[in-house]
C-alpha cells in the first residue's frame, strides 16, 4: 500500500481522510460515551443517509452535480438540532429522541433513494465506506471539519468535561446552554467527515469502540482521550491497509480491528493490567464500602 500511497492521489486522499476520522471520531466519542449518548451517533448517521439520498436525488433533477456530502452535513445538523429539541420535549423519556430521529432519517433516505431510482455504486460507498471515493473537494471538507472539531474540543475542554461529568452541577454553575447545541452540531460534523471512509452504517463504531476499549485501562479523562485516539488511528490505518490488500470496503475492516482491540483490552483488564482496577464500566448507583 505504501507504493500505492506514493503513486495514486485517491489513495492519498483516503488515507489522509482516514487519519482525520481516526482522530476526531474517538475524540468527540469520549464525550458521547460518558454522557451515555452512544446511540446519538447511530441516529445522526441515519439522518446523514437521508441527506445523501436527497443530494443524489437533487443531482438527478438538475444538470449539475450536488456533492451529497454537503446535503448529508446539512441533514445531520438539522437532525442534531431535532434530537436536542426532542430531548427537551420528552424531559423524562429523553432517549425517545433517538429512535424518532433515526426512523425519520431512514424514511427520508428510502423515499429519496426510490425517487433517485435506487442504489448505485457511489451510494454503496457511502453506506460501507470506500477507499477510492474521496475526492479533492471531499478531502478539503473533511480536513476543515477536522480543524473545527479539534479547535472546539481544545477551546471548550473544561466546559465539555463539566457538562459530561455532572450536568446538574454545570446548570447550577450557569455553564452556557449553547454548549449543548454546539456539541451536538460538532457530533453531526464528525459523522459527516468520517462516513466517507468508514461508511454510514459503521461510523458510530469509530466513535464508540475505541472509547469502550480505552475505558477498560485508563484512570483519567485525558488518558482516555489520548488512548481512544491511539486505538482509533490503529484501527483506521490497519483497516485501510487490509481493505486495500483484500479489495474490500474499509468500513468493515476498520470496525473489525476496533473489535479486536476491544477484546485485547478486556483480556488485559482481566489479567489485571489496568490503571483503574476495571472500575470504569461499573453500573451507576452501585456503592462501595
Amino acid at each position: 500500500m505504501i507504493e500505492a500511497l506514493l503513486d495514486y492521489e485517491f489513495i492519498r486522499y483516503s488515507f489522509i481522510s482516514g487519519i482525520v476520522a481516526g482522530l476526531i471520531a474517538p475524540l468527540i466519542g469520549t464525550f458521547i460515551v460518558i454522557r451515555r449518548l452512544s446511540l446519538i451517533a447511530d441516529a445522526l448517521s441515519h439522518v446523514t443517509l437521508g441527506g445523501i439520498a436527497f443530494g443524489v436525488y437533487l443531482s438527478t433533477l438538475f444538470t449539475f452535480t450536488i456533492n451529497p456530502l454537503i446535503t448529508g452535513i446539512i441533514f445531520s445538523i438539522l437532525g442534531a438540532l431535532g434530537i436536542e429539541r426532542l430531548r427537551s420535549v420528552y424531559k423524562h423519556y429523553q432517549e425517545l429522541a433517538i429512535p424518532i430521529i433515526m426512523s425519520l432519517g431512514i424514511a427520508v433516505g428510502i423515499v429519496f433513494l426510490s425517487l433517485a431510482n435506487g442504489f448505485n455504486q457511489d451510494l454503496f460507498g457511502y453506506l460501507f465506506g470506500s477507499i477510492s471515493a474521496v475526492s479533492m473537494n471531499d478531502l478539503i471538507l473533511i480536513v476543515s471539519i477536522g480543524i473545527i472539531v479539534i479547535l472546539f474540543i481544545f477551546l471548550l475542554y473544561k466546559e465539555l468535561f463539566m457538562v459530561s461529568f455532572d450536568e446538574e452541577y454545570a446548570n447550577v454553575m450557569n455553564v452556557n446552554r449553547w454548549i449543548y447545541i454546539a456539541f451536538i452540531i460538532v457530533v453531526a460534523l464528525v459523522i459527516s467527515a468520517s462516513m466517507r471512509i468508514v461508511g454510514i452504517l459503521m461510523v458510530s463504531a469509530l466513535m464508540t469502540l475505541p472509547v469502550a476499549s480505552a475505558m477498560r485501562i485508563t484512570s483519567s479523562f485525558k488518558q482516555l482521550m489520548i488512548l481512544s485516539v491511539i486505538f482509533g488511528e490503529t484501527a483506521v490505518i490497519s483497516g485501510l491497509f487490509l481493505s486495500y490488500h483484500l479489495n474490500i470496503s474499509p468500513g468493515g475492516t476498520i470496525v473489525l480491528v476496533s473489535i479486536l482491540i476491544l477484546m485485547g483490552t478486556i483480556i488485559l483488564n482481566k489479567l489485571g493490567v489496568s490503571r483503574n482496577g476495571g472500575r470504569n464500566e461499573e453500573v451507576p448507583g452501585q456503592t462501595q464500602g
Binding site: 460518558i34 473544561k158 466546559e159 468535561f161 463539566m162 461529568f165 455532572d166 452541577y169 454545570a170 454553575m173 450557569n174 455553564v175 480505552a214 475505558m215 485508563t218 484512570s219 483519567s220 479523562f221 485525558k222 488518558q223 482516555l224 483503574n276 472500575r279 470504569n280 464500566e281 461499573e282 453500573v283 451507576p284 448507583g285 452501585q286 456503592t287
Partner: peptide, 21 residues
C-alpha cells in the same frame, strides 16, 4: 456520588472542574 461511579476521570480532573465558571 452517583455521577462518580464508573466515570473515567481522576480526582484532580473532577476537582478542577469546579473552577470552570
Amino acid at each position: 456520588n452517583s455521577f462518580a461511579k464508573g466515570f473515567p476521570a481522576s480526582v484532580s480532573e473532577v476537582v478542577m472542574s469546579g473552577l470552570t465558571k
